[in-house]
Amino acid sequence: MMENMKLIADHLVYEYNKGTNQTVRALDDVSFVIHPGEFLGLIGHTGSGKSTLVQHLNALLRPDGGTIYYDGADVFEKSYDRKALRGKVGLVFQYPEHQLFEETVFKEVCFGPNNMGLDIKEVEQRAYAAIARVGLTEECLDQSPFDLSGGQKRRVAIASVLAMQPEILVLDEPTAGLDPKGRDELLSMIMDLRETEGISIVLVSHSMEDVAEYVDRIIVMDKGKILYDDTPKVVFAHAKELEAIGLSAPQVTYILQDLKSAGLDVDTTGITLAEARNTILEALHWKG
């Protein structure tokens, strides 16, 4: 049973501005499990605690209550090697482009693996592979990351985490600001990483459509607590409840509800484009 659990978040509590009258409880008794090879979506309104939560997964933040187990070991034990953990749980920050600092794209992507103490050849190989994987061209290598467009910077930041070859890849709103093709490319790249390398993915996203399309399981955060932890179909069946906390169902789900009200016999549990298409064709008795 335990070996089927890569990471366990156990009753996490976290507060900002402790000991002042401005204390914010950003995480309030949060527990869940990440299985090997799983694609997990994390959604919630702005300020619900998503970014705070993901910074616990690689021990960047220390909880005020509860703990994290990685491969069965408590990562907040004194002797635990948290530096090594940061290579295994690769965190792509929200707006990671704000944290770029090297002179060139290539140096930027080498930074992480370099820090892990790998030899220079290995570091450079990983950097080239990661840069190619995120779809940046060779021309970018010697450019300053600061001279790139917003979307290009994002890719550099993701490449620099991928170069550490993590076992769990955590991405905090990675598609914000990417063009539609860039969103699709990034998400397919992540799917592909999971399939070929078997790594687990945690995707924080504000796109209900993307989450519906790609993830196996969704965790919904509301004011520091977990509201739902279930399959996308079950979670998005709660459209009303999601709206009440600043979220929504995917657009196609609303279309199916409209069609149902208009008397078309469609299945309103559809959450992806393909599901919507198929149930509409069936309802119309369309022989394609």
């Binding site: 063009d179 539609p180 093709k181 860039g182 699709d184 459509e209 995917p250 657009q251 196609v252 279309i255 484009l273 919507a276 298409r277 509409i280 064709l281 119309l284 369309w286 394609g288």
Partner: peptide, 23 residues
């Protein structure tokens, strides 16, 4: 639009897919 790395709204895309199926 897709050649230019863009897309269409999900409603438009669904209509487009239905049309391709003959509707």
């Amino acid at each position: 639009l897709r050649e230019l790395r863009l897309d269409v709204p999900q409603v438009t895309e669904l209509a487009y897919e239905l049309k391709r199926a003959g509707v």
